[in-house]
Design a protein around this nucleic acid. Structure first.
Length: 233
DNA sequence: CCCCAGGCGTCCA
DNA sequence: TGGACGCATGGG
């Protein structure tokens, strides 16, 4: 509820000093990036890579190929990604929708807000997947919010516990210059923090590069002896 | 054995 | 309208 405004520029400099640029380009083609954005829903990227490799062997990422590929073949290819029945259906609907809209080049002519609304209207595309596609495939300056970002922001009291996707996105969008490369880098760096330090169960605030941005009382809570159940401090 | 991973749609009070 | 719940494989 009581959230404090962070200096997000300073946070970025700290992250860059700690980790360096992540150079996070998730795939080699626009098609592969879009498919990856969908496959990674609630799924480790490691498993997504397996699925993408198998899909490449099944004939590649061309949307026309994807649309006409028998459902069972697609399911088999993306099985390692989990939720493969849902995701195969979502992928084929997405491929069909993109083809029907005239392809990626045609879609790229739309302004960001319109494109986002169009993506959100597709089955199985929520805010994170839509924004990932906007950022990585279409190069739009859209800040992607994910589970890591929400967890980090809530624990640092930049957001309240009940704040969700839109509030988090406003926080980062208002606190930073609107720049595609910057948003890409920032997102990657936050993922790094979320994986290595700001873990769900036992956050490692002592050695976390962002420790200096943690409110005192929360830092104390996370360094407590009996710190097995520190969700937020 | 457990928990977790770069969500989303559905259902029900 | 919002809080559970199902979806599913792979790794620590």
């Amino acid at each position: 509820m009581s959230s404090s405004t962070p200096n997000l520029e300073a946070v970025l400099q700290t992250l860059l000093a700690a980790f360096g640029p992540q150079h996070w380009w998730p795939a080699e083609s626009r098609e592969e990036m879009i498919i990856g954005a969908l496959l990674t829903q609630n799924t480790a990227w490691k498993n997504v890579e397996k699925g993408l490799a198998r899909l490449r062997r099944q004939g590649g990422f061309d949307f026309e190929h994807l649309r006409q590929l028998p459902r069972k073949k697609l399911e088999e290819a993306i099985r390692p990604c989990g939720y493969f029945r849902q995701k195969s259906q979502r992928l084929q609907k997405l491929a069909a929708a993109i083809l029907n809209a005239g392809g990626l080049d045609e879609l790229a002519r739309r302004p960001t807000a319109k494109l986002r609304q169009w993506l959100l209207g597709l089955y199985g595309i929520g805010p994170e997947t839509a924004d990932s596609i906007l950022l990585y495939t279409f190069g739009r300056p859209v800040f992607v919010i994910d589970a890591y970002t929400l967890r980090i922001a809530r624990r640092h009291d930049w957001l309240g516990e009940k704040d969700g996707y839109d509030t988090a996105q406003q926080l980062f969008t208002r606190g930073l210059p609107s720049d595609t490369r910057l948003f890409n880098e920032y997102h990657a760096l936050l993922v790094r923090i979320g994986k290595d330090f700001c873990r769900p169960r036992q956050p490692d605030c002592q050695t976390c590069p962002l420790a200096g941005y943690l409110p005192d009382q929360i830092f104390k809570a996370t360094t407590d002896k009996d710190a097995t159940k520190n969700e937020t401090g």
